[in-house]
Protein backbone atom coordinates (compact mmCIF):
# COMPACT_ATOMS: atom_id res chain seq x y z
CA UNK A 1 0.00 0.00 0.00
CA UNK A 2 1.34 3.40 -0.78
CA UNK A 3 3.00 5.31 1.92
CA UNK A 4 1.01 8.51 2.38
CA UNK A 5 -1.29 7.98 5.31
CA UNK A 6 -3.88 10.54 6.25
CA UNK A 7 -4.49 10.19 9.98
CA UNK A 8 -7.50 12.47 10.13
CA UNK A 9 -9.69 9.87 8.39
CA UNK A 10 -11.11 6.65 9.80
CA UNK A 11 -8.56 3.84 9.55
CA UNK A 12 -10.15 2.21 6.54
CA UNK A 13 -9.93 5.41 4.49
CA UNK A 14 -6.38 6.32 5.44
CA UNK A 15 -4.37 4.98 2.53
CA UNK A 16 -4.91 5.56 -1.15
CA UNK A 17 -5.00 1.83 -1.83
CA UNK A 18 -7.75 1.46 0.76
CA UNK A 19 -9.83 4.12 -0.93
CA UNK A 20 -9.37 2.37 -4.25
CA UNK A 21 -10.47 -0.95 -2.78
CA UNK A 22 -13.54 0.52 -1.14
CA UNK A 23 -14.66 2.25 -4.32
CA UNK A 24 -13.95 -0.93 -6.27
CA UNK A 25 -16.13 -2.88 -3.89
CA UNK A 26 -18.99 -0.45 -4.27
CA UNK A 27 -18.79 -0.92 -8.00
CA UNK A 28 -18.76 -4.66 -7.50
CA UNK A 29 -21.96 -4.21 -5.49
CA UNK A 30 -23.42 -2.44 -8.51
CA UNK A 31 -22.69 -5.61 -10.49
CA UNK A 32 -24.28 -7.69 -7.74
CA UNK A 33 -27.43 -5.58 -7.96
CA UNK A 34 -27.62 -6.39 -11.66
CA UNK A 35 -27.02 -10.07 -10.96
CA UNK A 36 -29.82 -10.31 -8.43
CA UNK A 37 -32.09 -8.16 -10.58
CA UNK A 38 -31.69 -10.72 -13.34
CA UNK A 39 -32.64 -13.51 -10.96
CA UNK A 40 -35.66 -11.51 -9.84
CA UNK A 41 -36.63 -10.94 -13.45
CA UNK A 42 -36.46 -14.69 -14.05
CA UNK A 43 -38.58 -15.27 -10.98
CA UNK A 44 -40.97 -12.56 -12.15
CA UNK A 45 -41.44 -14.33 -15.47
CA UNK A 46 -41.53 -17.92 -14.25
CA UNK A 47 -42.84 -17.50 -10.71
CA UNK A 48 -46.41 -18.45 -11.55
CA UNK A 49 -45.68 -21.40 -13.83
CA UNK A 50 -46.41 -24.22 -11.44
CA UNK A 51 -46.76 -26.97 -14.07
CA UNK A 52 -49.27 -28.73 -11.84
CA UNK A 53 -46.81 -28.79 -8.94
CA UNK A 54 -47.01 -27.02 -5.60
CA UNK A 55 -47.80 -23.31 -5.46
CA UNK A 56 -46.27 -20.77 -3.09
CA UNK A 57 -49.21 -20.83 -0.72
CA UNK A 58 -48.90 -24.63 -0.58
CA UNK A 59 -45.39 -24.58 0.75
CA UNK A 60 -44.38 -21.23 2.28
CA UNK A 61 -44.66 -20.97 6.06
CA UNK A 62 -44.85 -17.50 7.52
CA UNK A 63 -43.23 -18.32 10.85
CA UNK A 64 -40.04 -19.78 9.44
CA UNK A 65 -39.68 -16.98 6.96
CA UNK A 66 -40.21 -14.37 9.63
CA UNK A 67 -37.55 -15.92 11.83
CA UNK A 68 -35.10 -15.96 8.93
CA UNK A 69 -35.90 -12.35 8.20
CA UNK A 70 -35.40 -11.24 11.78
CA UNK A 71 -32.14 -13.12 12.06
CA UNK A 72 -30.72 -11.48 8.98
CA UNK A 73 -32.06 -8.03 9.82
CA UNK A 74 -30.54 -8.20 13.28
CA UNK A 75 -27.25 -9.46 11.92
CA UNK A 76 -27.11 -6.48 9.60
CA UNK A 77 -27.62 -4.23 12.64
CA UNK A 78 -24.93 -5.96 14.70
CA UNK A 79 -22.56 -5.79 11.77
CA UNK A 80 -23.14 -2.05 11.69
CA UNK A 81 -22.32 -1.93 15.39
CA UNK A 82 -19.09 -3.82 14.78
CA UNK A 83 -17.96 -1.16 12.33
CA UNK A 84 -19.14 1.58 14.67
CA UNK A 85 -16.87 0.24 17.40
CA UNK A 86 -14.06 -0.29 14.96
CA UNK A 87 -14.13 3.42 14.28
CA UNK A 88 -13.75 4.00 17.98
CA UNK A 89 -10.73 1.68 17.87
CA UNK A 90 -12.49 -0.62 20.27
CA UNK A 91 -11.19 -4.02 19.23
CA UNK A 92 -13.01 -6.00 21.85
CA UNK A 93 -16.46 -4.65 21.06
CA UNK A 94 -15.71 -5.00 17.39
CA UNK A 95 -14.99 -8.69 17.76
CA UNK A 96 -17.96 -9.30 20.02
CA UNK A 97 -20.45 -7.76 17.61
CA UNK A 98 -18.82 -9.29 14.59
CA UNK A 99 -18.99 -12.77 16.08
CA UNK A 100 -22.64 -12.20 17.00
CA UNK A 101 -23.23 -11.20 13.39
CA UNK A 102 -21.75 -14.43 12.20
CA UNK A 103 -23.77 -16.51 14.61
CA UNK A 104 -26.94 -14.82 13.44
CA UNK A 105 -25.88 -15.45 9.85
CA UNK A 106 -25.24 -19.09 10.62
CA UNK A 107 -28.65 -19.29 12.27
CA UNK A 108 -30.20 -17.86 9.14
CA UNK A 109 -28.43 -20.42 6.99
CA UNK A 110 -29.52 -23.22 9.27
CA UNK A 111 -33.15 -22.14 9.00
CA UNK A 112 -32.92 -21.77 5.25
CA UNK A 113 -31.40 -25.18 4.70
CA UNK A 114 -34.05 -26.70 6.95
CA UNK A 115 -36.70 -24.95 4.90
CA UNK A 116 -35.26 -26.30 1.65
CA UNK A 117 -35.07 -29.85 3.00
CA UNK A 118 -38.64 -29.56 4.10
CA UNK A 119 -39.72 -28.48 0.61
CA UNK A 120 -37.86 -31.32 -1.01
CA UNK A 121 -39.58 -33.76 1.28
CA UNK A 122 -42.90 -32.37 0.20
CA UNK A 123 -41.96 -33.08 -3.38
CA UNK A 124 -41.10 -29.51 -4.29
CA UNK A 125 -37.68 -29.78 -5.93
CA UNK A 126 -35.72 -27.68 -8.35
CA UNK A 127 -36.81 -30.03 -11.14
CA UNK A 128 -40.52 -29.91 -10.41
CA UNK A 129 -41.56 -26.75 -12.19
CA UNK A 130 -40.29 -23.49 -13.60
CA UNK A 131 -41.58 -21.72 -10.50
CA UNK A 132 -39.50 -23.95 -8.21
CA UNK A 133 -36.43 -23.80 -10.44
CA UNK A 134 -36.42 -20.03 -10.27
CA UNK A 135 -37.30 -20.02 -6.57
CA UNK A 136 -34.46 -22.34 -5.59
CA UNK A 137 -31.89 -20.63 -7.74
CA UNK A 138 -32.78 -17.14 -6.55
CA UNK A 139 -32.74 -18.16 -2.89
CA UNK A 140 -29.82 -20.50 -3.38
CA UNK A 141 -27.71 -17.73 -4.86
CA UNK A 142 -28.47 -15.53 -1.89
CA UNK A 143 -27.75 -18.40 0.50
CA UNK A 144 -24.48 -19.13 -1.27
CA UNK A 145 -23.52 -15.49 -0.81
CA UNK A 146 -24.23 -15.74 2.91
CA UNK A 147 -22.15 -18.91 3.16
CA UNK A 148 -19.30 -17.28 1.31
CA UNK A 149 -19.59 -14.26 3.60
CA UNK A 150 -19.31 -16.42 6.69
CA UNK A 151 -16.17 -18.18 5.47
CA UNK A 152 -14.67 -14.86 4.48
CA UNK A 153 -15.53 -13.37 7.87
CA UNK A 154 -13.84 -16.22 9.70
CA UNK A 155 -10.66 -15.56 7.70
CA UNK A 156 -10.90 -11.94 8.63
CA UNK A 157 -11.38 -12.62 12.33
CA UNK A 158 -8.18 -14.66 12.29
CA UNK A 159 -6.39 -11.74 10.67
CA UNK A 160 -7.80 -9.27 13.17
CA UNK A 161 -6.51 -11.45 15.99
CA UNK A 162 -3.12 -11.84 14.34
CA UNK A 163 -2.57 -8.25 13.34
CA UNK A 164 -4.91 -6.06 15.33
CA UNK A 165 -6.50 -3.02 13.80
CA UNK A 166 -4.41 -1.67 10.96
CA UNK A 167 -5.53 0.28 7.91
CA UNK A 168 -5.55 -3.01 6.00
CA UNK A 169 -7.60 -5.07 8.44
CA UNK A 170 -9.93 -2.13 9.03
CA UNK A 171 -10.50 -1.81 5.31
CA UNK A 172 -11.26 -5.51 5.03
CA UNK A 173 -13.68 -5.27 7.92
CA UNK A 174 -15.40 -2.28 6.38
CA UNK A 175 -15.74 -4.00 3.02
CA UNK A 176 -17.21 -7.15 4.48
CA UNK A 177 -19.71 -5.02 6.36
CA UNK A 178 -20.83 -3.49 3.07
CA UNK A 179 -21.22 -6.97 1.67
CA UNK A 180 -23.22 -8.10 4.64
CA UNK A 181 -25.60 -5.15 4.60
CA UNK A 182 -26.07 -5.69 0.90
CA UNK A 183 -27.15 -9.29 1.47
CA UNK A 184 -29.74 -7.98 3.86
CA UNK A 185 -31.01 -5.59 1.20
CA UNK A 186 -31.39 -8.48 -1.21
CA UNK A 187 -33.24 -10.42 1.42
CA UNK A 188 -35.74 -7.60 1.92
CA UNK A 189 -36.69 -7.96 -1.72
CA UNK A 190 -36.84 -11.75 -1.50
CA UNK A 191 -39.02 -11.46 1.56
CA UNK A 192 -41.35 -9.04 -0.17
CA UNK A 193 -41.47 -10.23 -3.75
CA UNK A 194 -41.13 -13.95 -3.20
CA UNK A 195 -42.60 -14.80 0.18
CA UNK A 196 -45.16 -12.11 0.95
CA UNK A 197 -46.25 -11.93 -2.67
CA UNK A 198 -46.65 -15.71 -2.74
CA UNK A 199 -48.72 -15.69 0.40
CA UNK A 200 -51.01 -12.85 -0.69
CA UNK A 201 -51.93 -14.21 -4.09
Amino acid sequence: MSANVNHSLPLEYQTEQNRLNILGFWIFLGAEIVLFATLFAVYGVLGHRYAGGPTPSDIFKLNDVLIETLLLLTSSFTCGLAVFFMRQRNMKQLLVWFVITLLLGAGFLFMEIREFIHYVHEGATMQTSAFLSSFFVLLGTHGAHVTFGIIWAVMLIIQLLQRGLTPVTARKMFIISLYWHFLDVVWIFIFTFVYLKGMVG
Binding site: R19, W26, A31, I33, V34, F36, A37, A41
Partner: peptide
Protein backbone atom coordinates in the same frame (compact mmCIF):
# COMPACT_ATOMS: atom_id res chain seq x y z
CA UNK B 1 -19.50 8.94 2.91
CA UNK B 2 -15.91 9.62 1.93
CA UNK B 3 -14.32 11.37 -1.02
CA UNK B 4 -16.12 9.07 -3.44
CA UNK B 5 -19.56 9.55 -1.97
CA UNK B 6 -20.87 11.17 -5.11
CA UNK B 7 -19.47 8.43 -7.31
CA UNK B 8 -21.11 5.84 -5.09
CA UNK B 9 -24.48 7.50 -5.41
CA UNK B 10 -24.21 7.71 -9.20
CA UNK B 11 -23.08 4.09 -9.29
CA UNK B 12 -26.04 2.95 -7.19
CA UNK B 13 -28.46 5.04 -9.25
CA UNK B 14 -27.20 3.54 -12.49
CA UNK B 15 -27.33 0.02 -11.04
CA UNK B 16 -30.92 0.62 -9.97
CA UNK B 17 -31.76 1.95 -13.43
CA UNK B 18 -30.33 -1.20 -15.00
CA UNK B 19 -32.11 -3.38 -12.45
CA UNK B 20 -35.46 -1.78 -13.24
CA UNK B 21 -34.87 -2.17 -16.96
CA UNK B 22 -34.08 -5.84 -16.50
CA UNK B 23 -36.97 -6.69 -14.23
Amino acid sequence: EGEDGKTNVINMAYAVFVAIVIV
